[in-house]
Design a protein around this nucleic acid. Structure first.
Length: 627
RNA sequence: GCGGCCAUAGCUCAAUUGGAUAGAGCACGAGCCUACGAAGCUCGGGGUUGCAGGUUCGAGUCCUGCUGGCCGCGCCA
């Protein structure tokens, strides 16, 4: 597995301890076992338990297995031999090594090693490596449909996608956010046709109107032809057949109208195109507003909807036909795969294309036009099979090839459903989807209520703040509650939406992290004048633990990006906040300590605050200085 | 019918991708503020990781079978 940043992290002077230890053990491994040692991963991990030290090296057991034929060494002997070959540069970093269990090498760092590493990361990078725009990723996120309100499903596609985009941005990648809007094709035409039939003035239409029209259009267009055939075959009552026939005719009329509208839209009929544009404007206006509320970077620049690819659909289909990868089946064009029955449909029997076609055109655009070496899709887990097929089709035709000759990496990040208390997909009492707006309004109201309640206490740091200030803080808290709850568990899993738990502000929540940040900000505000370059002294266990937690930041960011797992970052945030709170409890910063200790602890507070704020900003969460 | 995902403490979730005694939070019990911010900290009880086998020095993690749940399966997106 290659590093996210090809350039050697140690050259950044970020004091990455794991890398320093790993390179030291590599030298030792080579010294002890030559070729076989060079090929061995030192496997440096954070210690499973603090009593085993700070880190552990787990190479010995695996190496014993590969060496078994030629040597007869036990893992413990192998570990000892490697330790005997440890270069002085490695020995200088650590207390004497210990071998324990089946062959673990326990590593305890010298306090100066930790202090030096912490000093080295105390700059604007906070130790995080930077690819300097030399690597490129496209992130498919949000994926709203025109004329439809955003609902909870879009919450995940939006904030998970935004966080992944921010992770890569933080690592210095060139990031293209791609909002794959549903803004083209029959569904939009149906809505448009329904609006025009109803003589609704499109210039003044609202998103609610559109939403209603969309639903009505879908209902009108629903044709139960199979049902009708079945009814005739089984000779059910004439009443039922008549009913189905009427529905069939109504649907036929609506569909014919929609098809006509679609034809005019596609041929550039100025009046239809103008109305269509208005639908998009009305829809997106609210999407941008919601994105802003959520702290998500989503703008018109990021729109790469179905309509954007409309002229690329025919060439896409042609390419598959030319490559003899597509074949006719019952009038439609399908791509078949060697290892599964299910084909990928890329053209309907009436000659029009469908969603897979757009997805294929979009992958090609992202790799060949944007130059993305990775394309990440933040889309509902139910579309697993679909993306598997699309990705395989792209590989078959060879569109993953980059100019450099290497292959672009396609990844679907499948996320689970948001469930209600009944463990069923979250719905309102009347069975409708919750609009995202309603959900966010509720969360913001709860956040504001909590913040106001606290500001009413005279000793509170927020006492006497203006109503606007409290509202802003309350909003930050409410949004953080929702986002952190979503991003802190494995995205692939379903989760139960429980606002009470999210906004409880206790335990592993967004507000807990914000609170830790605000506490530190409070200390720093009280400390008048501090020495930013003072020596860092690590005496207490809590100081040492805090320093080690801070030093894990770069790995947490890289790991979260590599695994496309925001919950890894959330786990880091929670652990850091936790470790800081313990430090804070045990180590006075401003009172009753000598100047050197005070300066050292203040510096650690400062770094901690910046790391917390930085990590939260990757999740698009605001960290207020007071709350 | 075929295929995919999942099952961990009473509840909600972790587990550094095969490493040491499976960890957090909530809830429950016991402590800590004339306050460097108690939205906090410390300590405690709570587990046959759905079941049965297998692979190996080592399995929550990999393989096989079973049970239970969710999801998907050609002209919707």
């Amino acid at each position: 597995m290659s590093s996210l940043c090809e350039s050697n992290s140690s050259s950044h002077g970020n004091g990455d301890l794991v890398e320093q230890l790993a390179s030291g053990f590599k030298i030792a491994l080579q010294g002890a076992f030559g070729e076989a040692g060079t090929a061995t991963d030192p496997s440096i991990k954070v210690a499973a338990n603090p009593k085993f030290g700070d880190f552990q090296a787990n190479f010995a057991m695996g190496l014993a297995k590969t060496l078994a034929s030629s040597h007869g060494n036990h893992p413990k002997e192998i570990a000892q031999l490697v330790i005997d070959h440890a270069p002085q540069s490695l020995r200088d970093l650590c207390e004497p090594f210990e071998i324990a269990g089946p062959g673990f090498v326990n590593i305890r760092l010298r306090p100066t090693t930790i202090a030096n590493a912490l000093t080295a990361m105390d700059n604007s990078t906070l130790g995080v490596p930077n690819a300097k725009g030399l690597r490129t990723v496209a992130v498919d996120l949000c994926g709203v449909n025109v004329a439809k309100q955003m609902h909870v499903g879009h919450l995940r596609a939006t904030i998970i996608g935004d966080t992944i985009a921010r992770l890569y941005e933080r690592l210095g990648w060139k990031v293209y956010r791609q909002n794959h809007l549903g803004d083209w094709g029959l569904p939009i035409a149906m809505t448009l046709a329904a609006l025009r039939r109803a003589k609704i003035e499109i210039a003044r239409v609202t998103l609610d109107d559109l939403n209603t029209a969309y639903r009505n259009a879908q209902a009108q267009g629903r044709d139960d032809e199979p049902g009708l055939a079945a009814a005739r075959a089984t000779q059910v009552g004439p009443h039922r057949i008549a009913e189905l026939e009427a529905q069939h005719e109504g649907a036929a009329v609506a569909l014919a109208d929609a098809h006509d509208t679609l034809r005019r839209l596609q041929s550039g009929d100025t009046s239809v195109v103008a109305d269509w544009q208005k639908l998009i404007d009305v829809t997106m206006c609210e999407v941008y507003e919601t994105a802003a509320t959520l702290g998500v970077d989503l703008k018109p620049d990021h729109n790469r909807g179905e309509s954007f690819f409309r002229d690329r659909l025919a060439p896409t289909v042609d390419a598959f036909v030319q490559a003899k990868l597509a074949e006719r089946d019952a009038g439609a064009l399908v791509v078949r795969f060697a290892d599964r029955e299910r084909p990928l449909l890329i053209q309907k029997s009436d000659g029009t294309s469908l969603y897979a076609t757009t997805d294929l055109a979009a992958v090609r655009y992202r790799i060949q036009d944007l130059g993305a070496e990775r394309v990440v899709y933040c889309v509902d887990a139910r579309q697993r099979d679909h993306f598997r097929d699309v990705f395989d089709a792209v590989r078959l035709i060879g569109w993953t090839k980059l100019p450099s000759g290497s292959d672009a990496h396609l990844v679907h990040v499948p996320f689970g459903a948001v469930l209600g208390p009944d463990k069923r997909p979250l719905k309102t009492r009347s069975g409708e989807n919750f609009t995202l707006k309603a959900l966010l309004d509720e969360a913001v109201a709860r956040g504001r209520r909590e913040v106001r309640a606290r500001s009413a206490i005279p000793e509170s740091p927020t006492a006497g703040m203006s109503s606007d200030e409290l509202d802003a803080i309350g909003q930050a808290v409410g949004i953080a509650a929702i986002k952190y709850a979503d991003l802190s568990s494995d995205v692939a899993r379903d989760y139960v939406f429980d606002l009470d738990r999210m906004v409880s502000f206790e335990g592993d929540t967004g507000p807990y992290a914000q609170y830790a940040h605000a506490r530190i900000a409070g200390i720093l505000a009280k400390a008048s004048g501090r020495d930013a370059d003072c020596p860092i002294a690590l005496v207490n266990a809590e100081e040492r633990a805090l320093a080690l937690a801070l030093l894990r930041y770069s790995n947490a960011v890289e790991d979260a990006a590599k695994q496309l797992a925001p919950n890894r970052l959330a786990a880091f945030i929670h652990e850091l906040a936790n470790t800081f709170n313990a430090f804070y409890q045990a180590c006075p910063v401003l009172r009753g300590v000598d100047d050197a200790t005070r300066a050292s602890r203040l510096r650690m507070c400062d770094i901690t605050r910046r790391v917390l704020a930085d990590a939260l900003s990757i999740m698009g969460i605001v960290a207020p200085n007071r709350m």
